[in-house]
Amino acid sequence: MATWITGTVVENKRWHADLFSLRVKTDPFDFIAGQFVRLGMPGPEKRIQRAYSLVNSPDDPILDFLVTTVPDGELSPRLDQLQPGDTLEVSQPASGFFILSEIPDGKTLWLIGTGTGIGPYFSMLGTDEPWQRYEKIYLIHGVRTEADLCYQDKVRQWQSRYPEQLVYQPVVTREPVIGALHARIPSLIHSGELEHATGGTLDENAQIMLCGNPQMITDAKAELAARDLNINLRRKPGNVTVEQYWK
Protein backbone atom coordinates (compact mmCIF):
# COMPACT_ATOMS: atom_id res chain seq x y z
CA MET A 1 0.00 0.00 0.00
CA ALA A 2 1.31 3.44 -0.93
CA THR A 3 2.25 5.86 1.80
CA TRP A 4 3.12 9.54 1.56
CA ILE A 5 6.14 11.49 2.73
CA THR A 6 6.73 15.24 2.72
CA GLY A 7 9.13 16.75 0.23
CA THR A 8 10.67 20.20 0.29
CA VAL A 9 11.35 22.03 -2.96
CA VAL A 10 15.00 23.03 -3.38
CA GLU A 11 14.75 24.33 -6.96
CA ASN A 12 12.16 25.05 -9.63
CA LYS A 13 14.26 25.24 -12.77
CA ARG A 14 12.54 26.88 -15.73
CA TRP A 15 13.31 25.52 -19.20
CA HIS A 16 10.65 27.67 -20.84
CA ALA A 17 7.19 29.03 -20.03
CA ASP A 18 5.50 25.61 -19.97
CA LEU A 19 8.34 23.26 -18.99
CA PHE A 20 10.17 23.06 -15.69
CA SER A 21 12.13 20.71 -13.46
CA LEU A 22 11.08 20.44 -9.85
CA ARG A 23 13.89 19.33 -7.54
CA VAL A 24 12.72 18.02 -4.19
CA LYS A 25 14.40 16.80 -1.00
CA THR A 26 12.79 14.02 1.03
CA ASP A 27 13.81 11.41 3.52
CA PRO A 28 15.96 8.82 1.70
CA PHE A 29 14.18 6.02 -0.13
CA ASP A 30 15.11 3.33 -2.60
CA PHE A 31 13.96 3.12 -6.21
CA ILE A 32 15.11 1.67 -9.52
CA ALA A 33 16.06 3.96 -12.41
CA GLY A 34 13.03 4.25 -14.69
CA GLN A 35 10.42 4.07 -11.95
CA PHE A 36 7.88 6.73 -10.98
CA VAL A 37 6.18 8.13 -7.90
CA ARG A 38 3.12 10.28 -7.42
CA LEU A 39 3.31 13.91 -6.44
CA GLY A 40 0.41 15.26 -4.43
CA MET A 41 -0.96 18.48 -3.01
CA PRO A 42 -4.05 19.09 -0.86
CA GLY A 43 -7.27 19.76 -2.78
CA PRO A 44 -10.63 21.12 -1.62
CA GLU A 45 -11.98 17.60 -1.03
CA LYS A 46 -9.07 15.19 -1.45
CA ARG A 47 -5.40 15.04 -2.36
CA ILE A 48 -4.68 15.95 -6.00
CA GLN A 49 -2.04 13.57 -7.33
CA ARG A 50 -0.32 12.62 -10.55
CA ALA A 51 2.44 10.16 -11.52
CA TYR A 52 5.86 11.51 -12.49
CA SER A 53 9.01 9.61 -13.38
CA LEU A 54 12.16 10.20 -11.38
CA VAL A 55 14.74 11.93 -13.57
CA ASN A 56 17.51 11.64 -11.00
CA SER A 57 19.44 8.43 -10.50
CA PRO A 58 19.04 6.35 -7.34
CA ASP A 59 22.30 7.59 -5.84
CA ASP A 60 21.24 11.26 -6.10
CA PRO A 61 19.65 12.42 -2.81
CA ILE A 62 17.64 15.17 -4.55
CA LEU A 63 14.58 13.98 -6.47
CA ASP A 64 14.12 15.52 -9.91
CA PHE A 65 10.84 15.68 -11.86
CA LEU A 66 10.34 17.03 -15.38
CA VAL A 67 6.91 18.65 -15.67
CA THR A 68 4.90 20.20 -18.47
CA THR A 69 2.37 22.76 -17.31
CA VAL A 70 -1.12 21.88 -18.51
CA PRO A 71 -3.09 25.15 -18.32
CA ASP A 72 -6.36 23.52 -17.27
CA GLY A 73 -4.74 20.74 -15.24
CA GLU A 74 -5.50 20.22 -11.59
CA LEU A 75 -1.94 19.71 -10.37
CA SER A 76 0.72 20.91 -12.83
CA PRO A 77 -0.17 24.65 -12.58
CA ARG A 78 0.20 24.38 -8.80
CA LEU A 79 3.52 22.55 -9.09
CA ASP A 80 4.59 25.29 -11.50
CA GLN A 81 4.19 27.89 -8.76
CA LEU A 82 6.23 26.07 -6.11
CA GLN A 83 9.41 27.76 -4.93
CA PRO A 84 12.33 26.68 -2.70
CA GLY A 85 11.06 25.98 0.80
CA ASP A 86 7.55 25.01 -0.31
CA THR A 87 6.35 21.48 0.41
CA LEU A 88 4.44 18.77 -1.42
CA GLU A 89 3.75 15.09 -0.90
CA VAL A 90 5.62 12.20 -2.54
CA SER A 91 4.21 8.66 -2.66
CA GLN A 92 6.11 5.60 -1.50
CA PRO A 93 7.25 3.14 -2.69
CA ALA A 94 8.27 3.94 -6.26
CA SER A 95 6.49 1.88 -8.93
CA GLY A 96 6.86 0.64 -12.50
CA PHE A 97 8.61 -1.98 -14.62
CA PHE A 98 10.08 0.35 -17.25
CA ILE A 99 13.50 -0.57 -15.92
CA LEU A 100 16.64 -2.05 -17.42
CA SER A 101 16.42 -5.33 -15.50
CA GLU A 102 13.28 -6.05 -17.57
CA ILE A 103 15.16 -5.51 -20.85
CA PRO A 104 16.90 -8.43 -22.58
CA ASP A 105 20.54 -8.21 -23.52
CA GLY A 106 21.51 -6.97 -26.96
CA LYS A 107 24.22 -5.11 -28.79
CA THR A 108 22.46 -1.75 -28.87
CA LEU A 109 20.02 0.09 -26.63
CA TRP A 110 17.67 2.67 -28.16
CA LEU A 111 16.14 5.10 -25.67
CA ILE A 112 13.40 6.84 -27.64
CA GLY A 113 11.25 9.43 -25.89
CA THR A 114 9.11 12.44 -26.67
CA GLY A 115 8.60 15.46 -24.43
CA THR A 116 8.88 14.68 -20.72
CA GLY A 117 8.98 10.99 -21.63
CA ILE A 118 12.75 11.40 -21.88
CA GLY A 119 12.96 11.64 -18.08
CA PRO A 120 13.31 7.94 -17.18
CA TYR A 121 16.23 7.61 -19.59
CA PHE A 122 18.23 10.29 -17.80
CA SER A 123 17.75 8.31 -14.60
CA MET A 124 18.98 5.13 -16.31
CA LEU A 125 21.98 6.79 -17.95
CA GLY A 126 23.11 8.04 -14.54
CA THR A 127 23.71 4.43 -13.48
CA ASP A 128 26.41 1.99 -14.56
CA GLU A 129 24.06 -0.66 -15.95
CA PRO A 130 23.38 0.56 -19.50
CA TRP A 131 27.03 1.37 -20.15
CA GLN A 132 28.11 -2.07 -18.97
CA ARG A 133 25.45 -4.07 -20.84
CA TYR A 134 25.24 -2.45 -24.29
CA GLU A 135 27.93 -1.70 -26.86
CA LYS A 136 26.11 1.36 -28.19
CA ILE A 137 23.36 3.55 -26.73
CA TYR A 138 21.14 5.78 -28.86
CA LEU A 139 19.29 8.55 -27.00
CA ILE A 140 16.52 9.99 -29.19
CA HIS A 141 14.51 12.97 -27.92
CA GLY A 142 11.51 14.11 -29.92
CA VAL A 143 10.15 17.59 -29.13
CA ARG A 144 8.27 20.45 -30.73
CA THR A 145 10.81 23.26 -30.25
CA GLU A 146 14.50 23.59 -29.46
CA ALA A 147 13.65 24.99 -26.01
CA ASP A 148 12.15 21.60 -25.12
CA LEU A 149 15.59 19.94 -25.40
CA CYS A 150 16.25 19.99 -21.68
CA TYR A 151 19.19 18.67 -19.62
CA GLN A 152 21.73 19.36 -22.34
CA ASP A 153 24.43 19.62 -19.68
CA LYS A 154 23.82 15.99 -18.71
CA VAL A 155 23.91 14.91 -22.34
CA ARG A 156 27.22 16.68 -22.92
CA GLN A 157 28.73 15.08 -19.82
CA TRP A 158 27.81 11.59 -21.03
CA GLN A 159 29.02 12.37 -24.53
CA SER A 160 32.36 13.43 -23.08
CA ARG A 161 32.60 10.40 -20.81
CA TYR A 162 31.38 7.83 -23.35
CA PRO A 163 32.28 9.36 -26.74
CA GLU A 164 32.33 6.02 -28.58
CA GLN A 165 29.27 4.59 -26.86
CA LEU A 166 26.58 7.29 -26.77
CA VAL A 167 24.80 8.75 -29.77
CA TYR A 168 22.39 11.60 -29.04
CA GLN A 169 19.87 12.57 -31.70
CA PRO A 170 17.36 15.39 -31.15
CA VAL A 171 14.20 15.45 -33.24
CA VAL A 172 12.44 18.84 -33.47
CA THR A 173 9.18 19.02 -35.40
CA ARG A 174 8.08 22.66 -35.37
CA GLU A 175 11.22 24.62 -36.20
CA PRO A 176 14.52 23.99 -37.98
CA VAL A 177 17.38 23.25 -35.60
CA ILE A 178 20.96 22.50 -36.63
CA GLY A 179 21.77 18.85 -35.96
CA ALA A 180 18.16 17.87 -35.34
CA LEU A 181 15.90 15.74 -37.50
CA HIS A 182 12.61 17.29 -38.54
CA ALA A 183 9.79 14.73 -38.68
CA ARG A 184 7.76 12.46 -36.42
CA ILE A 185 9.80 9.59 -34.98
CA PRO A 186 7.64 6.84 -36.57
CA SER A 187 8.18 8.48 -39.97
CA LEU A 188 11.92 8.62 -39.36
CA ILE A 189 11.89 4.90 -38.54
CA HIS A 190 9.83 4.13 -41.64
CA SER A 191 12.07 6.08 -43.99
CA GLY A 192 15.32 4.85 -42.45
CA GLU A 193 16.37 8.44 -41.75
CA LEU A 194 16.74 7.81 -38.01
CA GLU A 195 19.21 5.01 -38.66
CA HIS A 196 21.05 7.00 -41.32
CA ALA A 197 21.46 9.99 -39.00
CA THR A 198 22.64 7.96 -36.02
CA GLY A 199 24.63 5.29 -37.84
CA GLY A 200 22.70 2.62 -35.96
CA THR A 201 20.49 -0.24 -37.08
CA LEU A 202 17.07 -1.17 -35.73
CA ASP A 203 17.41 -4.93 -36.02
CA GLU A 204 17.23 -8.10 -33.93
CA ASN A 205 20.35 -7.03 -32.03
CA ALA A 206 18.65 -3.85 -30.79
CA GLN A 207 16.66 -3.31 -27.63
CA ILE A 208 14.27 -0.39 -28.08
CA MET A 209 12.48 1.52 -25.32
CA LEU A 210 9.59 3.86 -26.15
CA CYS A 211 8.19 6.47 -23.77
CA GLY A 212 6.06 9.58 -24.26
CA ASN A 213 3.26 10.55 -26.61
CA PRO A 214 0.85 7.59 -26.94
CA GLN A 215 0.37 8.12 -30.67
CA MET A 216 4.13 8.06 -31.19
CA ILE A 217 4.28 4.81 -29.27
CA THR A 218 1.45 3.21 -31.24
CA ASP A 219 2.88 4.25 -34.60
CA ALA A 220 6.48 3.40 -33.70
CA LYS A 221 5.44 -0.04 -32.47
CA ALA A 222 3.74 -0.65 -35.82
CA GLU A 223 6.84 0.41 -37.76
CA LEU A 224 9.07 -1.81 -35.63
CA ALA A 225 6.65 -4.76 -35.84
CA ALA A 226 6.90 -4.50 -39.63
CA ARG A 227 10.59 -5.33 -39.12
CA ASP A 228 9.70 -8.29 -36.88
CA LEU A 229 10.74 -6.32 -33.80
CA ASN A 230 7.98 -7.12 -31.35
CA ILE A 231 6.94 -6.19 -27.83
CA ASN A 232 9.09 -7.49 -25.01
CA LEU A 233 7.10 -9.55 -22.50
CA ARG A 234 8.33 -11.59 -19.55
CA ARG A 235 6.69 -14.70 -20.99
CA LYS A 236 7.98 -13.92 -24.48
CA PRO A 237 11.08 -11.68 -24.67
CA GLY A 238 11.17 -9.26 -27.57
CA ASN A 239 12.90 -6.11 -28.79
CA VAL A 240 10.46 -3.31 -27.90
CA THR A 241 9.58 -2.17 -24.38
CA VAL A 242 6.94 0.48 -23.83
CA GLU A 243 6.01 2.87 -21.02
CA GLN A 244 2.45 4.21 -21.31
CA TYR A 245 3.59 7.54 -19.93
CA TRP A 246 0.43 9.52 -20.65
CA LYS A 247 -2.92 8.22 -19.49
Rank of each mutant, 00 (worst) to 15 (best):
V143M: 10
R144L: 14
R144G: 14
T145S: 10
E146G: 09
D148M: 01
D148T: 00
D148H: 12
L149T: 02
L149F: 07
C150K: 01
Y151W: 15
Y151K: 14
Q152P: 00
K154C: 12
K154F: 15
K154P: 05
V155Q: 03
Q157S: 09
Q157I: 05
W158S: 08
Q159G: 01
Y162P: 06
Y162Q: 13
P163K: 04
L166G: 04
L166H: 02
V167T: 14
V167A: 11
V167K: 08
V167M: 06
Y168L: 05
Y168K: 05
P170C: 01
V171K: 01
V172K: 02
V172R: 04
V172C: 08
T173C: 02
R174G: 07
R174W: 07
R174C: 03
E175D: 01
E175K: 01
V177N: 05
I178N: 14
I178S: 14
I178W: 02
A180F: 04
L181C: 02
H182V: 05
A183I: 07
R184G: 01
R184H: 03
R184Q: 12
I185D: 01
I185P: 00
I185Y: 01
I185M: 06
P186D: 08
P186Y: 00
P186Q: 06
S187H: 08
S187D: 15
I189F: 09
H190V: 00
H190Q: 14
S191F: 03
S191I: 05
G192D: 11
G192L: 13
L194Q: 13
H196S: 09
H196W: 05
A197C: 08
A197Y: 06
T198P: 12
T198I: 07
G199R: 11
G200T: 09
G200C: 10
G200D: 08
G200A: 09
T201M: 13
T201L: 14
T201E: 12
L202F: 08
D203M: 07
D203T: 03
E204L: 14
E204F: 11
E204P: 01
E204K: 15
N205G: 15
A206D: 07
Q207G: 10
I208R: 12
M209I: 08
M209Y: 13
C211S: 13
G212Y: 12
G212T: 10
N213G: 04
N213P: 02
